[in-house]
């Protein structure tokens, strides 16, 4: 609905918009710009030294002895994202679909499945590191009661990577569930009844009715989940694996759970505290996010049917 009648109070818009715009400029746009500027400098966090070095930081990311670690981190981030997002969305959709199909009788499940929305990455990391600590962890203690197999979950590269993925999926179940449920609750039950009358089985109804209807939400969720796996997962990884362990060759240039954002952190604030180098990585991340957003707007608008307006 577009309002034709509007207030014409001069200057009020400045009063209302100024705080928001000021904060966005000062704390989002300017730091983004500063990251770009810093990426051309050699800058040490603790010494406070700054020296203009042109494109050397970027060169170091892609060519030379530091490059393999960056490429590895890039590949890991992409694989990790795919393995968290798609199973995560599928689980969220199935749960939402089942509890929506029960109508009012499913209300109890809605509450029991929404609470993980309040879970934080750090809590997920803490609880998982308690469960899977190889020596004192609860899972190995339980396994120990009937078997002598004691996997070192957080030292074994494959298990550690898998564990972080599982923890990440688990943490985000509530989020995906909430959005799918909201979308499915808007679908009138009569659509499903019609499908049933026409003889469509449970799977056919899922693929032919549910899936097309949740297309827009899925599309939206893929992008919000990308922001989750790219950035927010940091807390979980920091608590669970601290970026480790080293993988087998050729994945032995960086820790297997050192994702791009973790590398920004360790390079910028860790031992070498090379802020310029970390800034260059931030700029690459910005470029990737910009590209993803561009795809979202230009490709998505045509492909996906949006409800509402």
């Amino acid at each position: 609905m577009v309002h034709r009648n509007r207030y014409k109070t001069k200057g009020l818009e400045i009063l209302f918009l100024f705080p928001t715009l000021l904060i966005l400029i000062l704390f989002l746009y300017y730091p983004a710009w500063q990251s770009i500027i810093l990426s051309f400098f050699r800058s040490n966090l603790f010494l406070g030294t700054r020296k203009f070095i042109g494109l050397e930081n970027f060169q170091n990311l892609f060519i030379g002895p530091l490059a393999p670690a960056y490429y590895q981190s890039m590949i890991q981030t992409l694989v990790f994202s795919a393995l968290v997002i798609f199973p995560g969305l599928l689980i969220g959709l199935c749960l939402a679909n089942l509890s929506a199909s029960l109508g009012k009788k499913g209300r109890i499940y809605r509450i029991l499945l929404i609470w993980p929305y309040a879970l934080s990455p750090a809590v997920a990391g803490t609880v998982f590191s308690f469960l899977f600590n190889p020596v004192t962890g609860a899972v190995n203690t339980l396994i120990g009661t009937f078997s002598s197999w004691q996997p070192r979950w957080l030292d074994n590269p494959f298990l550690a990577f898998l564990l972080v993925i599982i923890a990440c999926i688990w943490k985000n179940i509530g989020y995906n569930f909430v959005f799918y449920l909201a979308a499915l609750q808007n679908v009138p039950q009569i659509v499903y009844e019609a499908g049933k009358i026409d003889g469509a089985g449970i799977f056919k109804r899922f693929f032919r009715i549910t899936l097309p209807l949740v297309g827009p939400v899925s599309y939206f969720l893929i992008f919000t989940n990308l922001s989750y796996t790219f950035f927010e997962a940091f807390g979980l990884i920091d608590l669970l694996t601290s970026g480790g362990p080293m993988g087998p060759a050729p994945f032995d240039n960086a820790g297997l759970t050192t994702l791009l954002i973790y590398k920004v952190f360790t390079d910028g604030f860790g031992g070498s505290s090379n802020m310029g180098f970390a800034a260059a990585q931030s700029v690459i991340l910005m470029t990737m996010i910009g590209l993803i957003t561009w795809i979202q707007f230009h490709y998505g608008e045509k492909k996906v049917h949006y409800g509402g307006e």
Partner: peptide, 19 residues
Amino acid sequence: ILITLMMPTEMLIIGLFDL
């Protein structure tokens, strides 16, 4: 305002830190 949706703080920490 809308563009800032794709600027999560985690991505900006390096630039934000000095400021």
